[in-house]
Nucleic acid binder design. Structure first.
Length: 119
DNA sequence: ATATTGACTTGGC
DNA sequence: TGCCAAGCCAATA
């Protein structure tokens, strides 16, 4: 039997993130909840940090509460995340996603809508 | 075994 | 807007 090296909760988090549609965004907290781990946003951050490159997760679509990018504004990660978001048509200003950019995806299915809960 | 850290969140001032 | 304290908890030191 396989005593998996990857804990169940990490896999659950990666699964949720992999389902975030292109052009839409979510938050660490929301992902944690959908993964069945309410209140454990930090674990989501960690899960993304150690995620195997081979999974090609859309990590840039996961933001901190309020649509903020959590990396230092001068860091390579910050620049890269902002670049990827913009390439999907999402507006980013002052380190955060602009409201209109979040709401502009009414077509997303119900499950995905739960990802973004703060207006 | 104890202390600190961190890709977080919420509430309060 | 911003800083701080709590709550969160696996990984590091």
């Amino acid at each position: 039997m396989q005593s998996s090296a990857t804990p169940h909760h990490l896999q659950a988090i990666w699964d949720v993130v992999s389902e975030i549609p292109r052009g839409t965004i979510s938050t660490y907290g929301a992902v944690a909840e959908l993964a069945g781990l309410p209140g454990r946003a930090r674990l989501v951050g960690r899960a993304l940090r150690i995620a195997p490159e081979s999974l090609h997760l859309p990590w840039h679509r996961v933001l901190a509460a309020g649509g903020r990018i959590t990396f230092p504004s001068t860091s390579r990660e910050f620049i890269e995340q902002r670049r990827r978001l913009r390439s999907e048509g999402i507006t980013v200003a002052r380190g955060r996603v602009v409201c209109e950019a979040r709401a502009g995806r009414p077509s997303a299915d119900a499950r995905i809508e739960q990802l973004w809960k703060r207006p």
